[in-house]
């Protein structure tokens, strides 16, 4: 990954007024990636939407880390189920067209 795709974790914390400890805990729980280069933590840009969402859960809704972990897990499961449903719908549509059902 190039450094241009990374955002300094401290910069994120300053911008969103969150403690570094919070994103460090998210990293420890495996909810986000942090890349360390020369002892400085960086967040991949692709992780930003997820990190922003988790930050909102923590600070807007006052949900603790355990709650965030549970929610993140359920949201991922929900997303994967939605994708499965979507795939099955597409498949069904294809069969209906091919076989004139």
């Amino acid at each position: 990954m190039e450094k241009g795709d990374l955002i300094r974790a401290e910069e994120f914390c300053n911008h969103y007024h969150v403690e570094y400890g919070f994103i460090s805990e998210l990293h420890s729980s495996g909810l986000i990636e942090i890349t360390t280069i020369e002892e400085t933590g960086y967040i991949p840009q692709s992780q930003l939407p997820e990190l922003e969402k988790l930050t909102r859960l923590r600070y807007d809704l006052d949900i603790n880390l355990e709650g965030i972990e549970a929610i993140a897990h359920l949201l991922n499961r929900n997303k994967s189920l939605q994708e499965t449903i979507h795939g099955l719908e597409e498949k069904l549509k294809l069969y209906e067209t091919l076989y004139g059902v």
């Binding site: 909102r56 006052d62 929900n78 997303k79």
Partner: peptide, 14 residues
């Protein structure tokens, strides 16, 4: 408010 916000927050209801 907190209870309802947790229930209906857009991040929890994409």
């Amino acid at each position: 408010y907190r209870k309802l916000a947790r229930q209906y927050h857009p991040d929890l209801n994409p």
